[in-house]
């Protein structure tokens, strides 16, 4: 058991470096000017997609633990969750600073009027307190409430996939495939939790 724990601790710097690789590639492409004809759209798409991937990876750890019986999965949860927040923040910064730069009045109107922007902003706002309370100290201080607070990640996940689904042209069957795949993965990860929730309710009753 002790050896296994060491293996996890040992693996973490590698996971951390791997999680930064997408950012490194984006920076390299930005500096070299090889992001394609619409580089800002490419940055927005890539940072958003990585935020969603890390969020789904985070949500996959609990079902993985139940399925495999190996508790070690959970020890990667905070790091992956924080990377989801990191890429979501980059996504927001690219949109607000690089893309909208100077046209911020438009942003306020869009947050209120455009459901996909509303959903995206909501997802990010939910991730903020989760990131802030991700430390060991905060976990201890919040006790049972920490668990309840962090259940908000399900709402963030739902808002994130809606944010993606809402902006595709629904005429384009093929363009819809990618957001539908993410939505499908999200729903599978949610469904995987249902048996445990039902068991918990029965135990409580």
């Amino acid at each position: 058991m002790a050896a296994r724990r060491d293996a996890i601790a040992w693996s973490k710097p590698f996971v951390f470096a791997a999680a930064l690789a997408p950012l490194a590639l984006l920076v390299l492409d930005s500096v070299r000017g090889t992001l394609g004809p619409d580089p800002v759209a490419q940055l927005e798409h890539a940072t958003g997609a990585w935020a969603l991937r890390f969020l789904l990876a985070t949500l996959a750890l609990t079902p993985l633990r139940r399925a495999t019986g190996w508790p070690g999965w959970i020890r990667y949860r905070r790091m992956l969750g924080l990377f989801a927040f990191f890429y979501a923040t980059l996504h927001l910064v690219v949109y607000v600073v690089v893309d909208l730069g100077g046209f911020w009045s438009q942003l306020l109107g869009e947050i209120a009027k455009k459901p996909y922007i509303t959903a995206g902003v909501l997802a990010w706002l939910i991730l903020v307190p989760l990131a802030v309370t991700s430390t060991r100290g905060m976990m201890r201080r919040l006790g049972r409430r920490w668990q309840a607070l962090h259940k908000l990640v399900y709402i963030a996940g739902l808002a994130a996939v809606l944010h993606y689904l809402w902006q595709v042209k629904w005429g384009e069957t093929i363009a819809v495939v990618e957001p539908l795949v993410y939505t499908g993965v999200f729903l599978v990860l949610m469904a995987a939790r249902v048996p445990a929730w039902l068991r918990a309710r029965r135990a409580a009753a």
């Binding site: 759209a41 893309d99 046209f103 109107g109 455009k114 809402w166």
Partner: peptide
């Protein structure tokens, strides 16, 4: 506006 996004501004390629 397009129902899902603003047409007030554009990004020039």
């Amino acid at each position: 506006s397009h129902p899902r996004w603003s047409q007030a501004t554009e990004r020039r390629i």
